[in-house]
Simulated assay, not measured.
Amino acid sequence: MDLQVLRSFQAVAEGTTVTDAAADAGITQPALSRALNRLEDEIGAALFQRVGRVLRLTPAGRVFKEHVDVVLDGYDRGRRAVAERVDPDAGVVSLAFLHTLGTWLVPRLVTDFRQAFPRAQFELRQDGEIGLTRHLLDATADLIITGSEPGHPLITWRRLLVEPLRLAVPAGHRLAGHRRVRLSEAAEERFILLKAGYGLRHLTEGLCREAGFTPLVGFEGEEVETLRGLVAAGLGVSLIPSSPEVTATPDAPIRYLEITDVRGARDIGIAWLNSRGVPPIARRFLDHALRSAAAPGTSSPEAPA
Rank of each mutant, 00 (worst) to 15 (best):
I240R: 02
G206Y: 10
L167D: 09
G229C: 03
D89C: 06
L286C: 11
L36A: 07
R50D: 04
K195V: 06
V231W: 00
G78D: 09
P153N: 02
R80H: 09
V110H: 02
H135M: 11
F122H: 04
G61R: 01
L39P: 12
L183D: 05
R79P: 04
L175N: 06
A141C: 12
A96K: 01
R80P: 04
A116Y: 01
L194E: 07
R125M: 13
V278Y: 03
T19A: 05
V278M: 01
V86T: 15
L273Y: 10
P304V: 01
R77I: 03
E42F: 05
I270M: 09
P150N: 10
V169W: 04
G221L: 05
A25G: 11
W272H: 13
I27E: 15
T298K: 07
E302L: 07
T111Q: 05
F122M: 06
L6F: 02
D2H: 07
A96Y: 01
D127M: 02
A271H: 12
H152T: 05
P170I: 06
E189Y: 01
H67L: 08
T133E: 15
A11N: 03
V54I: 13
S238L: 03
H67A: 14
G197R: 07
A45C: 06
T247A: 15
L98T: 11
F213D: 12
G297I: 07
G236R: 00
T214M: 09
R114A: 05
R174K: 08
R263Q: 12
D89E: 14
